[in-house]
Design a protein around this nucleic acid. Structure first.
Lengths: 159, 159
DNA sequence: TGCGGGTTGTTATATAGCATTACAATCGAC
DNA sequence: GTCGATTGTAATGCTATATAACAACCCGCA
């Protein structure tokens, strides 16, 4: 089982501002600002979960299953914004690690219901703590009031 | 030359919130909020530039070359947060479209200098207008004051 | 009761966007 | 001039996803 994110020194994929270079009016576009911030967030997440073989998508999946016991794989896929096949791979991963189990549903013989195992729950709690701490570090440039404001604005932005 | 983003109806890759589903405490994490907002931004960008065969990365590259005439490909790669090979592909694309030209540098025979062509400039101006308008639509849920605040916060967040 | 269209999980395949590696030409320092 | 580092380039590989195909199953309807 190979880790899906290699740990390398100075890794590409994130945007490091280059000294003495003009970025035109890129800084005016929300798309660019959001992209940059999001990449920084991925970086922070990656740093916080090093050697854990987890990814943002997997963490999201774990959280959503935990919050919606009995969820269907299709529903999970929709929540993740991914195709059914992708959802299945995440579930496979979670199941292999003993974090989630598929149980037959009585109302529909086609679909499974997804449930966190005990191990999945503790695992999720630990991850949660870790991610929360990292989030604070990631946003350490902002004052508490500013963080709250940012959260609110981002939430409002996405309706 | 195939378009790199197919235009399809309801496309995966973006996060659509699912009715009656709990997202746990995902909404507290900046990583998740930023990711969601960024995907929405990509979607908006994609809609605004439909059938133009352009991508956020290409648009960024075009802008940066415009703002830094004579730029080196390596420097462009650094600015984009991508490897040299990736920068080359973007430049190839821009050159094939007649938007950018490579000129020999007198100070270094290894590297090229990148310059917008006249066509590249008008093209960039048009794109800029389009993206700017789309940005406004994308952020239409926010009041002007809120948009300014969001911009400022995002900027501060990334140092 | 059985038929037909849509849905679910699954598998296999394709594709896009990258990074990685390798290489020749060139630079810079000693 | 020699050696290590850098530049653009080309070839290759990899990872994350989407897409397509399929069998089992649900539901509505005659």
């Amino acid at each position: 089982m190979k880790p899906s994110l290699k740990t390398r020194g100075a890794r590409p994929g994130s945007i490091a501002r280059v000294e003495g270079l003009s970025y035109g009016d890129l800084g005016e576009h929300f798309g660019y600002l959001l992209r940059r911030a999001q990449l920084a967030g991925f970086d922070a997440f990656h740093r916080a979960t090093e050697r854990l073989d987890i990814t943002p998508a997997r963490y999201t999946a774990l959280t959503i299953v935990g919050a919606n016991p009995g969820l269907t794989q299709s529903a999970l896929g929709a929540a993740l914004g991914t195709a059914r096949s992708g959802a299945m791979m995440v579930v496979d991963w979670m199941e292999q690690r003993g974090l989630v189990e598929r149980r037959h549903r009585q109302d529909d013989a086609r679909s499974w219901g997804l449930y966190l195992t005990g191990r999945g729950e503790t695992n999720l709690r630990n991850l949660n703590r870790r991610v929360r701490a990292n989030d604070a570090a990631f946003a350490s440039r902002l004052a508490p009031r500013e963080r709250a404001a940012l959260r609110k604005l981002l939430d409002k932005l996405c309706g």
